[in-house]
C-alpha cells in the first residue's frame, strides 16, 4: 500500500534536500532505470521524462506531513520531516527495499539541466534507440543542452547502465 511512499522516503532520507521538481523527476527516473522498484510510469514531455503519478505521490506526502515543500523564486525544494522518518522506520519491517545511496548522492549533486539530458538519453535507450541514435535524437530534442551531451552520456554509462 505504501511501497512507493517508503522508497521515496528512503530517497529523501538519503538526499536530505532536493531542489526542484524537475530534478526530483529525473532522479527518480534514473533510479528506476537502475532497477529501483518505483512503480511510476514516465512519459516524455518538454523537460524530458515525467511522471504525473510521482508528482501526485509527492503531493500526498506533503499533505500528510512526511515532506516539507518549500517554495521560492527558484522553484520547489523538498525535505523529509521527522514524521516522514518516523513513518519510514515503522515501515522497515514491512518493506525490504532500499535505494542506491551512492547514486542518490551523485545524482543530487548534478544540475537539473544535466540530469534532464541524462534522463532523456536513458529514456531514448529504453525506447529502443541504439547509442548513436539516442545521442542524435537527444540533441534534436534538446539543442540547448548540447554543451553537456557527451558528459551526460558518459555519466549514464558509468553510473546508470
Amino acid at each position: 500500500m505504501f511501497d512507493s511512499t517508503y522508497l521515496l522516503l528512503k530517497l529523501f532520507n538519503q538526499a536530505d534536500l532536493i531542489q526542484g521538481r524537475k530534478k526530483l523527476q529525473k532522479m527518480v527516473h534514473l533510479l528506476s532505470s537502475t532497477g529501483t522498484n518505483f512503480p511510476f510510469k514516465f512519459q516524455y514531455h518538454h523537460y524530458g521524462p515525467y511522471s504525473a503519478e510521482l508528482q501526485q505521490e509527492i503531493d500526498f506526502m506533503v499533505s500528510y506531513g512526511m515532506l516539507d515543500e518549500i517554495k521560492s523564486s527558484y522553484g520547489y525544494t523538498y525535505q523529509v520531516t521527522d514524521r516522514g522518518r518516523e513513518f519510514m522506520n515503522q515501515l522497515d519491517s514491512q518493506y525490504n527495499e532500499n535505494v542506491n545511496q551512492d547514486l542518490v548522492g551523485s545524482l543530487n549533486q548534478q544540475s537539473s539541466q544535466f540530469l534532464e539530458m541524462v534522463s532523456t538519453y536513458a529514456f531514448l535507450l529504453d525506447s529502443n534507440y541504439d547509442s548513436e541514435g539516442a545521442k542524435k535524437k537527444a540533441l534534436e530534442l534538446k539543442p540547448h543542452l548540447e554543451w553537456c551531451i557527451d558528459d551526460a552520456i558518459n555519466y549514464y554509462h558509468q553510473m546508470i547502465s
Binding site: R21, H45, H46, Y47, Y50, A52, Q56, S73, Y74, G75
Partner: peptide
C-alpha cells in the same frame, strides 16, 4: 490516477505560480 481512466486535462494538478509552472503544464 491509478485507475485506467486518465484525463490529464482535468485530473492533473497545475500550480499557476513559479518557474516550474511550465513543467507542470507540460504534463
Amino acid at each position: 490516477s491509478s485507475s485506467s481512466y486518465k484525463d490529464p486535462y482535468i485530473l492533473q494538478k497545475t500550480k499557476s505560480e513559479g518557474k516550474e509552472e511550465e513543467s507542470e503544464r507540460e504534463a
